Amino acid sequence: MNISDELSKLYKASAEYSAVESKSECLEDTRVEIQKSILDHLEKREPRFVWLRGSPGTGKTAISMRVASTLDKQGRLAASFFWDKNRKGAGLASVEHFPSTLARQLALFNAEYEGLLVSRLRQPSSL
């Protein structure tokens, strides 16, 4: 069994920033400071967790999508997952498919991780 066969065992929701049609990025030249702040923080060699919070409708998703797009263009986006409660049945309305979707994306991004993941998937008790 080849690597792509092994990875196909993992459910993949179309949750990448580029696949989410119901959301959009920030308009050009808007929210520049917060985007710069996030991208600068992600450059550091310390834990790079970002928690973007705010009231509904304040642009958190738009900012996140723009940051993901920027990182992707730089070849630095390992994975992304955008929930969409309005697309029930697509794997975007719950956390159920979050781990497997991220695992597949990370495997495509990093060959070393891909090897470790496939090795684990080949173990009889892994699924």
Rank of each mutant, 00 (worst) to 15 (best):
F98N: 13
E16I: 01
V118C: 09
P47N: 03
G54M: 06
S80D: 00
M1L: 12
F109M: 01
S100P: 10
E16C: 08
L42Q: 07
S119K: 15
L7Q: 03
L71D: 05
E25H: 05
Y17K: 10
Q35C: 13
S69H: 15
Y17L: 02
S69D: 13
L10P: 08
E114Q: 12
T58L: 06
K73I: 12
A107R: 01
F81L: 13
S22I: 08
G59H: 08
E25L: 07
R87S: 13
R76W: 06
V67P: 05
Y113S: 00
C26P: 08
R122N: 11
L106C: 06
R31M: 05
T30Q: 07
S80I: 06
D40Y: 07
V95E: 13
K36C: 03
L77F: 11
S8H: 09
K73V: 12
K85D: 09
L42E: 01
E33D: 13
P56L: 02
D29L: 10
G91L: 11
T70Y: 10
D40S: 10
A15T: 07
M1G: 11
V95G: 14
T58G: 01
F82E: 10
A107M: 02
S69I: 06
E16V: 03
E96K: 15
L117Y: 00
L116A: 00
M65H: 09
R104A: 06
F98C: 11
G54Q: 08
G57Q: 07
E96C: 14
S125A: 15
A68V: 02
L102M: 13
A78V: 11
P99T: 15
E46G: 02
E96D: 15
L39Y: 01
L121G: 05
L117P: 00
L10W: 07
E96G: 13
F109I: 07
S100Q: 14
P47H: 04
L10F: 07
G91S: 09
T101K: 14
V32D: 02
E46N: 04
I38L: 05
F98D: 12
S55Q: 14
L121W: 02
V67Y: 02
E46F: 00
R53S: 15
I38N: 04
D5E: 14
F81E: 09
R87A: 13
F49E: 01
E112Q: 03
P47C: 00
L71G: 10
E114L: 01
W83V: 14
R45K: 14
P47A: 01
L71N: 07
V50E: 06
R104C: 01
R76V: 08
A93Q: 15
S22G: 08
Q74F: 07
L27E: 12
L92F: 01
V118W: 06
E33G: 08
R48D: 00
P56F: 03
L39N: 02
V20Q: 08
E6G: 05
Q35N: 10
R31Q: 07
R87Q: 15
D40E: 11
K88P: 04
E28L: 12
W51D: 08
S37N: 14
T101Q: 09
S64Y: 00
T70C: 13
K88M: 13
H41G: 02
E46M: 03
S119L: 08
E6N: 09
G59V: 09
F81H: 07
E21V: 10
L127M: 14
N2W: 03
V20E: 00
V118H: 05
S55E: 10
L102S: 08
R76P: 03
R31W: 00
K88I: 13
N86C: 12
F109G: 03
P47K: 04
R104V: 09
